[in-house]
Design a binder for these strands. Structure first.
Lengths: 85, 85
DNA sequence: ACAAAAAATTACCGTAAGGGAATAATCGAC
DNA sequence: GTCGATTATTCCCTTACGGTAATTTTTTGT
């Protein structure tokens, strides 16, 4: 055991980031979107959600709905994984 | 790169499971809850959500809210990780 | 630094849906 | 059958979401 958090950024292997709260998820989304050179509008269009939702998601809104979150992540080529703490 | 998906089940280290949709998340939650010997009521109380929410979450309701999901996962000692697909 | 352009955030509205609580119905084990 | 757990249903209140437009922030060029 003891496989998690070996890296300073909290990631498991430098490519993955734990998501303990919506704020961290938002940061992760924003980073990836920018890395991909997309605007919030672009991402919203691809993911099939509203622009405002992308903005709120990136800003860590806690009450975003799971399906919309998954849609955005998928549009960015990201996935969620459940891990034991 | 090439650090992800070393295991057949898509997990990072054989202990983790990817969550592509809410249905899989629900299964993960139910499995863990039962393994811990908790009722939905117990889990709901610990997580600070309603019993109905736990039921719906376990049944894969797509539109559950993220904060409530995270609360339930935390109560089960589980975490979410964002990974590149 | 300044101005212009682009991007992001915020407000408003209407629709649709989530969540809690309580109840009732269903399923399971003993 | 009985007891406990799980799921489904109903009522009510709150709120997320999309769309548009307005505002603010950030970026870019000169």
């Amino acid at each position: 055991m003891m496989n998690a958090k070996k890296f300073p950024d909290g990631s498991i292997d430098g490519l993955h980031n734990t998501v303990l709260d919506s704020g961290q998820l938002g940061n992760r989304v924003r980073d990836k979107r920018r890395k991909d050179g997309l605007t919030q509008q672009d991402l919203a269009a691809v993911a099939g959600v509203g622009v405002r939702f992308v903005s709120e998601l990136e800003n860590g809104k806690p009450t975003v709905q799971l399906n919309a979150v998954l849609a955005v992540l998928a549009a960015l080529g990201l996935q969620l994984v459940v891990v034991e703490k």
